[in-house]
């Protein structure tokens, strides 16, 4: 349960989000034009960017949580893998998701390694475990990023445009996994992909001109979409189902 009160976010003195008040009880897809502030909102929830106002998770202010507590509560799956380390394997990278559960100074435990193994099997990518992260395709990298977030076993998972760099085949695989994860985690999905949002089937938050509006079920109706985007849902070929 995420509660947002009077959220104000600025970037270089420009107001990105203004006076946002939200109750996020369950899964949420965040949509909106480029630069509308979707990622800013997600990063505020992760406390990665500065913000004014309150963000409460289970009635605790995230600014008052320690970094470890916050990490155990929320994981963030970026749109794209950016990594300097050349020689990290998939298994080693996914294991990093266990960092917050690890005793500081000591090595990752057997339990951490088991959870990593199970996660790789769950996502059907255990055959990649000894591959170098650099050598993977974008689709495989996205799955590895999801695997890393899953090993953290956090309550909330934020996906930042998970299908932005993927072909239709890989988008479908990712979409199915995200939908499946709804049973175990609270999913917050940032996307431009209307079909992905409609397939994942959650409440929709549409951000425009620093404001956010919550749609519970009427979002994917043609009247709403043509008002917001100037397109109808069936104008675009459905990818999933």
């Amino acid at each position: 349960m995420i509660k947002i009160n009077n959220l104000l976010c600025k970037f270089n003195k420009k107001i990105i989000l203004d006076n946002i008040n939200l109750d996020i009880k369950s899964h949420l897809s965040i949509l909106g034009a480029n630069g509308s502030g979707k990622s800013t909102l997600a990063k505020s929830i992760c406390s990665l960017t500065k913000h004014d106002g309150e963000i409460l998770i289970d009635s605790k202010n995230i600014k008052e949580l320690s970094l470890t507590q916050r990490a155990k509560l929320i994981s963030y799956v970026p749109a794209k893998l950016e990594i300097y380390e050349q020689f990290i394997t998939v298994e080693e990278f996914v294991l990093l998701g266990r960092f917050t559960h690890k005793k500081s100074f000591f090595d990752y435990s057997k339990k951490d390694k088991n959870i990593t193994k199970q996660t790789l099997e769950f996502l059907n990518i255990d055959y990649l475990k000894n591959h170098l992260l650099h050598s993977l395709s974008s689709g495989e990298q996205q799955l590895v990023l999801i695997a890393q977030a899953l090993t953290t076993q956090s309550k909330i998972i934020i996906f930042d445009e998970p299908t932005a760099n993927l072909d239709p085949h890989n988008s479908k695989i990712i979409a199915e996994h995200i939908k499946g994860l709804k049973n175990y985690h609270q999913i917050i999905l940032i996307t431009h992909d209307l079909h992905l949002a409609s397939y994942v089937d959650s409440e929709v938050l549409f951000i425009k001109d620093t404001n956010a509006k919550l749609y519970t079920d009427e979002f994917f109706k043609d009247e709403t979409l043509s008002k917001l985007y100037g397109v109808k849902f069936n104008d675009m070929v459905a990818l999933y189902d």
Binding site: C46, L67, Y76, F99, T100, S104
Partner: peptide
């Protein structure tokens, strides 16, 4: 002492922060 933090920082600042690294 900070070898595992360093390993996380070799990915990105953001990802290290999200994993609980100060």
């Amino acid at each position: 002492i900070y070898r595992f933090e360093l390993q996380l920082l070799s990915v990105s600042d953001e990802s290290a922060t999200m994993k609980g690294v100060d």
